[in-house]
Nucleic acid binder design. Structure first.
Length: 735
RNA sequence: GCGCGGUUAGCUCAGUUGGUAGAGCAUCCCCUUGACGUGGGGAGGGUCACAGGUUCGAAUCCUGUAUCGCGCACCA
């Protein structure tokens, strides 16, 4: 027997070599671009998905690698099924995250603040950093084998997306959904900007609850964990039915509190909890969200005593100019000295910190831009709100669509709950890196437009938009919206087929996309949402720079091959479940890639000279059993792929290849075919039957495995006799 | 406080129409010059967190408890 086989099979599978070669094949084919796909796909149903744009804040981590893997499995599977498949890449400018990272670096290296540099210079630096990150990210995406259409790459802060942002803003402004208002917002003193409710991370800490009187002649005691804010109190609130305080309601008191004159009115409000503390509450309208609302309701004066740097602006020498935490101690000292402090107890408290900077959030009254989620407007003759649209998208569907399917479905409940608690979204940020708010001022005039107004003297709003405003438009801004011609040409791709992302950005991103798309387009942004879990370290901890436990997926692909990393990330990890990164697991799948390699070597060398005949019928009884088993595998895999159960399919294929095909069938085949030491068999019918079966099995297996292990399967495919095209665009097998 | 998820072999985890427990890795024994030692065969190892209930039968359904984790709310 003569083996006419590539020499490459005589050596173990070498991922590094093969991956480079295969990547080049794919690249040259152009098949990542839907317009260049073969005829079969051109006629197919469109399949579209966006890459969740990674932040240009640095390099990627294993969470990204997991996302890329799942998404690429979806895309490759759809392409093989004959769909006109589009996967759009892009990156996110990530406003606060990126700017604060660059600022930190500049501060560290040059000791300069952003104000030392100025707006233009800082932006120049940030852009340079973003560009560098971008290039790294693109390389990493490519390395993972993502079959993504680079010709359509987008950036949340590029020209086209900026136009989309301005257009969206203007429309919402005209509809009264975007408005400017003065109220207490979440201020991050560290990042020197406002943040939205969702950008707050709560940390449970021990705190002291102080109970005291403002002055000896004020009869009501109050409790607080923040005595320093009491300099800004303008009322004492009690419950209207509280017999202890009923007689005081309506009375007013004056006092000098740590050198600061204060005027307090006793008000009655049902929101006061009679059981907590003394049952009386000092109202600080300028430094508490709830107190602000109470202040509005009761017409209380606003008195700001803390500034943007979390420093006191009033009080005596021991207070004024001090940080709030220092001032707190000083106030307590004063209370003790004056004999006003009645009780000091330790309690657990949730404190608000800013997600990106870690700064302790200081509620401050400020003039900011908001999106009103409860503001009614007309849609198809019906009165709705953004909240209603967001809810309907998942419950009933929009404009006659099916409801958005969330996988796993338990997250639909989480989403719903979030919407119920949703308040107006503060979208203005006092940072420089981002989309500038398209509003101009001149004297007392205000102008909102896609372009700057004509005429002299108009000054644009200094603020930029929350980064999620632009990512909310992503499914359609990447398809050309608002350019009518471009968007129309791409309309078949919207709503996108599926959105794949981590459950940790369900609110940030998924919900905001639903908001923007249902409002601006009157349709859902995607039909299905697939949420993956967090990839944790070996000990189950979240990976982070500060813990130093980040595992670089690229280091692993270099060591074990991309296919092995992909398999390790996907096998047995169901949607919505966190997983632990496990190097052992990657190693195991590297062995599997090699096993596949040798299965191919066995089959190709023992079918030398035989032409694969897909319509071959004369199988022996034994081969018919094998064939049936194979068909069951194809059938089950196909069903489970369509149900997004990739974690099951991958394992099933592994098991079949290794323990059924290799361990049983190949061993059994040696005497039947007469290879590897076995004498030439007399039963030629059985031999041909087995050879045809083995070729059939290899064909099917390579196809089934391709979405999971694209490199090794494509590399083997390239040695298959009689192949017509790249495995990338081969037809998904049917049972 | 409300809600969600986990608790299965030493480790990491699968197990959806309920039918006498599975995988990978690890451990131990054995085999082998002929696809692959990145191999093959085999073994040990689990009262499926606990307690009730439904059922002929429960890891799987119901109720409750414990424990770990997460989300939201509260946060005077």
């Amino acid at each position: 027997m003569i083996f006419v086989m590539d020499d490459k099979f005589l050596k173990p599978y070498n991922p590094t070599e093969s991956e480079a070669r295969v990547a080049k094949l794919w690249d040259e084919s152009g098949f990542f671009n839907p317009d260049k796909l073969p005829e079969r796909n051109q006629k197919g149903e469109p399949f579209s998905i966006v890459l969740p744009p990674p932040n240009v804040t640095g390099t990627l981590h294993s969470g990204h690698a997991l996302a890329f893997t799942i998404e690429d499995i979806m895309v490759r599977h759809a392409r093989m099924k004959g769909m006109k498949t589009l996967w759009i890449p892009g990156t996110d400018h990530a406003a606060i995250a990126t700017q604060s990272k660059v600022e930190k670096e500049i501060q560290k290296k040059e000791g300069k603040s952003r104000h030392d540099l100025g707006r233009d210079e800082l932006l120049k630096r940030v852009r340079a950093f973003a560009q560098e990150s971008h290039d790294t990210i693109v390389n990493q995406v490519k390395k993972m084998g993502c079959s993504i259409d680079w010709s359509r790459e987008a950036f949340t802060l590029d020209e086209k997306r900026n136009l989309a942002v301005r257009t969206a803003f203007k429309k919402m402004y005209d509809d009264g959904l975007i408005y400017r208002d003065f109220r207490v917002v979440n201020w991050d003193p560290k990042g020197q900007t406002t943040i939205s409710d969702d950008e707050i991370v709560y940390e449970t800490r021990k705190a002291k609850l102080y109970t005291f009187k403002y002055a000896k002649d004020i009869p009501i005691s109050i409790s607080t964990t923040r005595p320093e804010t009491k300099l800004g109190d303008t009322a004492i609130a009690v419950h209207p039915d509280d017999p202890r305080y009923k007689s005081f309601i309506g009375k007013e008191y004056d006092a000098v509190f740590t050198g600061e004159p204060i005027h307090l009115k006793v008000i009655a409000d049902t929101s006061v909890d009679k059981e907590f503390g003394t049952g009386a509450l000092g109202v600080t309208p300028a430094h508490s969200q709830i107190d602000w609302e109470m202040g509005q309701k009761h017409g209380l004066p606003l008195k700001q005593v803390i500034n943007e740097y979390a420093k006191m602006t009033v009080g005596d020498d021991s207070i004024k100019g001090k940080k709030t935490i220092e001032a707190r101690e000083a106030v307590v000292e004063w209370l003790k000295f004056e004999g006003l402090l009645e009780k000091e107890e330790e309690i657990e408290q949730n404190i608000s910190t800013a997600e990106r900077t870690g700064g302790i959030v200081e509620p401050l009254p400020k003039l900011q831009w908001f999106i009103g989620v409860n503001k009614p407007f007309k849609r198809d003759g019906k009165e709705v709100t953004l909240k209603i649209l967001m809810k309907e998208a998942v419950e009933r569907g929009i404009g006659g669509s099916q409801p958005i399917q969330i996988i796993p479905d338990r997250f639909a409940k989480v989403y719903e709950h979030w919407i119920e608690n949703l308040r107006d979204w503060c979208i203005s940020r006092q940072i420089w890196y981002g989309h500038r708010i398209p509003v101009w001022y001149k004297d007392s005039q205000i102008y909102c437009g896609i372009e700057a107004p004509a005429g002299e003297g108009w000054v644009q709003d200094e603020d930029t938009l929350d980064t999620w405003f632009s990512s909310g438009l992503w499914t359609f801004s990447t398809l050309g919206w608002p350019d009518e011609k471009e968007f129309t040409a791409n309309k078949a791709y919207h709503p996108t087929t599926i959105l794949e992302t981590g459950y940790d950005i369900l609110f940030f991103w998924v919900a905001r996309m639903i908001l923007m798309t249902t409002y601006l387009l009157g349709e859902i942004p995607f039909k299905t949402v697939y949420l993956h879990g967090l990839v944790r370290d070996g000990k189950g901890r979240k990976m982070s720079k500060s813990l130093g436990n980040i595992i670089d997926p690229l280091e692993m692909t270099g060591k074990y091959g991309t296919d092995a990393v992909r398999m390790a990330l996907i096998v047995a990890v169901g949607p919505g479940n966190d997983s632990k990164f496990d190097e052992q697991k990657i190693k195991a799948y590297k062995l599997f890639a090699n096993k596949l390699w040798n299965i191919a070597r066995f089959i190709l060398s023992s079918t030398d000279g035989v032409t694969f005949d897909s319509s071959f019928k004369d199988f022996t009884a034994a081969d018919k059993v094998h064939l049936e088993c194979l068909q069951t595998l194809v059938k089950e895999s196909s069903t489970e792929m369509n149900e997004f159960k990739y974690y099951l399919v991958a394992e099933k294929l592994y098991h079949y290849a290794w323990h059924e095909l290799a361990d049983k069938i190949l061993e059994e085949s040696k005497p039947i075919i007469g290879v590897f030491g076995a004498p030439e068999p007399t039963d030629k019918v059985a031999k041909l039957s087995r050879q045809q079966f083995l070729l059939t099995a290899l064909h099917s297996l390579l196809k089934l495995l391709h979405p999971f292990m694209p490199f090794v399967t494509e590399e083997i495919w390239s040695s298959m006799p009689g192949r017509e095209s790249l495995l990338l665009v081969e037809e998904w097998p049917v049972a």
